[in-house]
């Protein structure tokens, strides 16, 4: 299972990088979202998959799954949501102000300094 997930993570990363390298703002935002998905899966896999039962002590199990990656991912999910929301709004405001969402047209100008 682990190796399959890791390969999946690789595919997701490739897609994310390709999207990040494009010129369109929404593609870039999608890229960051996918990249964070990939990273979450990777972290979870690194902690070991299905090596125990759910990390609830009420289960009275012999072995629990590693809870630390889960806690880290939980934090990461919420933060990546905040980041996505922020860039989305940034994109939308940029489009309102400059009338474009293409990165090569949004390079700033020297007279702004």
């Amino acid at each position: 299972m682990e190796s399959i997930i890791i390969v999946l993570v690789g595919i997701l990363t490739s897609v994310a990088i390709y999207l990040l390298l494009s010129k369109n703002l929404i593609r870039i935002i999608l890229g960051t979202a996918i990249l964070s998905h990939a990273v979450h899966l990777l972290i979870l896999t690194m902690g070991g998959l299905k090596s125990g039962t759910v990390p609830l002590l009420g289960e009275n199990a012999e072995r629990y799954i590693d809870a630390l990656p889960q806690a880290l991912i939980l934090t990461a999910i919420v933060i990546s949501f905040a980041v996505t929301a922020f860039i989305l709004v940034l994109a939308y405001r940029v489009y309102q102000e400059y009338g474009t969402d293409r990165m090569d047209e949004l390079r700033g100008s020297n007279d702004e300094q």
């Binding site: 993570v9 690789g10 990363t13 490739s14 897609v15 390709y18 390298l21 990939a38 990777l42 690194m46």
Partner: peptide, 21 residues
């Protein structure tokens, strides 16, 4: 060029993952 970088990036992550696993 973008495709190559993307694939190389994905490959790198996969190798790291498999090695660390």
């Amino acid at each position: 060029r973008n495709g190559l970088i993307a694939i190389a990036g994905g490959l790198t992550v996969t190798i790291v993952g498999l090695a660390v696993n």
